[in-house]
Design a protein around this nucleic acid. Structure first.
Lengths: 164, 164
DNA sequence: CATATCTCTACCAAGTTTATAGAGTTAACG
DNA sequence: CGTTAACTCTATAAACTTGGTAGAGATATG
């Protein structure tokens, strides 16, 4: 349909395209009135998300209780909880999997590092423990509603973007 | 050589195996006396890193001025700076690339998000800006020396690990 | 000149990501 | 009722990334 620049992919810590789509779709839902469902096609069009891909994403979010759906004509998706109660952390976990940078630091999918003899004596584990703590604190305190209000405030504070 | 359990790969935010190897190798170098070079083979053996892979990693670190090498017999690698001045952040950037979760938040490889109309109005950009700030603060304050001292303290504080 | 070491480039198998395809299910509406 | 607009589910595939291997070369020591 559209030609999309191929990724120039920038290694590991990037969130996936799928997660971006998920968060954008949730923002779109959050901007609705919360009563009337919004359709996959409508969201896909407004956010430039491939429709069939978005279908899968919304299904994932539904299975995890973030959104609910209504079928048939007049159907669509709705947030289950208010957007101020949906954190970026939980969405990322659903879409991209564990947040931890090492398997041995994951809360949801703990696993010993294959090559690491002792976790206590592992130099990098201790450091990444601190890193992931900082990360989690941010990810689980910031919500879809925060994203929206930060964006809206930024737009308000910057009127008439002039030519660069 | 050894059979390694195949990754059970846990999605995005994980640091790469290569970065783990790099950080472990640097820790190994840091534990040396800083005068006598340590050989690739020695480090590879002591840290269970595939030797040829470690060669590449050390070359990357050399190009970026983290380590230096001596060739020929008696050769090997040395840290350029004291381990207390080598941060996890800079090593990760060298090995895994940009730290930012979105291209439009990268300091070293800024790039507009293809699908994002306006950065100012992008809900997820504002949130991830906060997240990556927290992450960077941790990654650039913690050093190889910190990793070592944290590990050593943890080991000292936990004598005779009993059977679980 | 033999040998131990680092250096460089190319290659490749397996897995992941980002989709696309298409058949099925459900509810509203006339 | 039957048509249609929506969601649901499973399968498939191209492009890319990761983790690792191979092998020829360069250089210092003795």
């Amino acid at each position: 349909m559209e030609v999309r620049e191929t990724s120039l992919s920038m290694a590991d810590p990037m969130i996936s395209q799928k997660a971006k789509y998920a968060l954008r779709a949730l923002s779109a839902l959050a901007r609705g009135d919360g009563k009337q469902p919004r359709q996959i096609s409508e969201i896909a069009a407004s956010q430039s998300i491939p429709k069939k891909f978005l279908e899968q994403i919304l299904l994932d979010l539904k299975r995890e209780g973030i959104v609910r759906s209504l079928r048939g004509k007049q159907g669509g998706y709705l947030l289950v909880r208010p957007s101020a109660e949906v954190t970026f952390g939980e969405v990322l976990r659903i879409i991209d999997g564990p947040l931890a940078p090492l398997p041995c630091l994951s809360i949801t999918a703990y696993r010993r590092c294959d090559d690491c003899d002792g976790e206590v004596s592992c130099e990098i584990r201790h450091v990444f423990q601190k890193v992931v703590e900082a990360e989690r604190a941010a990810l689980f305190s910031l919500t879809i509603a925060d994203g929206i209000s930060m964006a809206d405030e930024a737009v308000a504070g910057e009127p008439v973007p002039e030519e660069a």
